[in-house]
Design a protein around this nucleic acid. Structure first.
Length: 488
RNA sequence: GGUCUCAUGGCCGAGCGGCUAGGCACCGGUCUGCAAAACCGUCUACAUCAGUUCGAAUCUGAUUGAGACCUCCA
């Protein structure tokens, strides 16, 4: 298994190519992912990004890497000034709800933690908060000033993109050229404090209505949007670590500015591999409240959103996400989710069946090859859709064995059970819910089905159908199989 | 307006020079008192027009269409 650790390829946004993954320290991986800003409850699109990085984390663990996974919590409002408006999203929410900023942050953090549980995400090793690292942020800003890449104006500090560009390349990640940016943004005014339009705030002087204010060498104020990630990634992973991830929409300006801050303070790009997860669409369009396709991760599970007629389990939603590659957009529609629901059921039923399979002397299929294909798929830039297609090949094989049309040896079956459970459960993060687990109902159902069985044996179809229809009305579906009837 | 992606069968989605994933639906079959379920099988698509090549969904150019970013964004 350790040989497979050397076969991983990752698409690096920095180069625009798949690159062989070579960790900075052998067998160890440092990974930083931009977490949620807690001014509202994370929506389904946010969840896709976190779930995709959860998948990446899980596969790195599966390969045997020792992973340090850091995902921040933004609990200080993003303060920017690039368009002339100061925006403190958390403060805004706090004023709206007439509570303090901390209450907003606490409230939504509790919800976010709950969602992590519901969607079966592994907790990162550290979830540092921006407000807990103000001192570190100030220190980095001081370092940038000292290096000559930032300047102080009227209690605020701005990153000096022009000075920076003399030594480093601004736009290395997003492919944006400073000159091009100039053309586009020239019309924007209200840049009175900034020397250059592309300069961005590292520290903003406080406004009278600010709820959160911190002291700094430049006076009372708030940290800029991008500096928190630089501070926390550096503190917990060092100045240069392996993977930095986030949603595609963070590529510019957030990640671009992070690189600038890191280079400007410590002289190097923080991450060797930059990874970006693509967006989730709903009914063909980006989620938006005005389009009426906006819903929360909990609403779809509880069936309380108007966007979809029925509810879907977190497993089905996660399965649906795993059927698309993390770098592709994914469209949630009623059809696609219903398809995922059925597919996931077929998968779980095969996995349950797998435990009771009869073994033979030999296997009619090369099980080793199947297992290899699992690794191969994921080693190719975490291609979960291919992994699932290979797992479904195995599902077909399992069903064929079950029907007596294929064979498997005892040793092969053991390996297959182990790896399928591992890839489905540990890597894809899908929970294998046992059916018929409702403890109080189970004995009752046994009794009812036993009565129905007698009726059927006596060809008393009136009674047997009455029971079946009655149960159906109660939402219980009876299935008559070869070896008796089952329900759920 | 600028930068950049993407257009795959009824739907969702992989693939990214030859071997033409997978899920769901459809259709056919097995099973079955009937039904449902389950299982098996079938189903050859790559926006358009040119070009490169022995060979293109995959490369190049043009056209059309969709989306993202440039402002907060996962």
């Amino acid at each position: 298994m350790s040989a497979r650790i050397n076969e991983l390829f990752i698409y690096n946004s920095l180069s625009g190519q798949k690159e062989k993954f070579e960790p900075i320290h052998p067998n160890r991986v440092g990974m930083y992912v931009c977490g949620p800003t807690l001014y509202s409850e994370p929506h389904m699109g946010n969840m896709r990004t976190f779930i995709n990085f959860d998948l990446i984390y899980r596969f790195l663990l599966k390969l045997g890497f020792q992973v340090k996974y850091v995902r921040n919590i933004t609990d200080a409002g993003h303060i920017t000034n690039s368009a002339g408006d100061d925006v403190d999203s958390i403060g805004k929410a706090a004023r709206l709800e007439q509570v303090q900023s901390l209450e907003i942050v606490y409230k939504y953090n509790v919800k976010f933690q709950e969602l992590q549980r519901i969607y079966n995400m592994l907790p990162p090793n550290i979830e540092p908060t921006a407000t807990g690292h103000i001192q570190e942020q100030i220190e980095i800003i001081e370092q940038i000033i000292e290096n000559g890449y930032a300047y102080v104006v009227n209690g605020s500090v701005y990153f000096d993109v022009k000075a920076y560009s003399s030594k480093f390349e601004y736009g290395i990640l997003s492919g944006r050229k400073v000159d091009e940016l100039a053309e586009e943004t020239r019309t924007l005014n209200a840049q009175d404090e900034k020397r250059f339009f592309a300069d961005f705030a590292l520290w903003k002087k406080s406004n009278p209505e600010d709820m959160q204010i911190w002291r700094s060498p430049w006076g009372d104020g708030n940290p800029g949007w991008h500096i928190e990630c630089t501070a926390m990634s550096t503190k917990y992973l060092g100045s240069h670590f392996d993977i930095h991830g986030g949603g595609l929409d963070l590529k510019f300006p957030h990640h671009e500015d992070e690189i600038a801050q890191n280079c400007g303070s410590l002289g190097c790009n923080p991450a060797k591999y930059w990874m970006h997860a693509n967006m989730l669409n709903v009914n063909g369009q980006k989620m938006s409240k005005s389009l009426g396709n906006y819903f929360l991760p909990k609403e779809i599970v509880e069936g309380t959103t108007d966007v979809f007629e029925k509810s879907y389990t977190p497993n089905v939603l996660r399965f649906s996400m795993m059927q698309a590659h993390y770098r592709s957009t994914l469209d949630f529609t009623a059809d696609s989710l219903n398809a995922a629901e059925k597919g996931f059921t077929r998968l779980t039923e095969a996995i349950e069946k797998m435990e009771t399979l009869k073994t033979s002397e030999t296997s009619s299929v090369n099980v080793n090859e199947i297992i290899e294909s699992f690794y191969k798929a994921m080693n190719d830039d975490f291609n979960a859709p291919i992994l699932l297609s290979k797992i479904f090949d195995a599902v077909k094989y399992i069903n064929n064995i079950n029907d007596g049309n294929a064979t498997i040896s005892k040793e092969d079956l053991e390996v297959l059970i182990f790896e399928i459970n591992s890839f489905v459960g540990d890597v894809l993060g899908l929970k294998l819910e046992k059916t018929n687990s409702d403890s109080k109902l189970a004995p009752v159902m046994d009794l009812v089905l036993d009565i129905r069985k007698s009726a059927r044996e006596n060809k008393d179809w009136t009674t047997s159908d009455k029971i079946r229809d009655g149960l159906a009305a109660a939402g219980i579906v009876v299935k008559d199989g070869k070896e008796g009837s089952t329900w759920n």
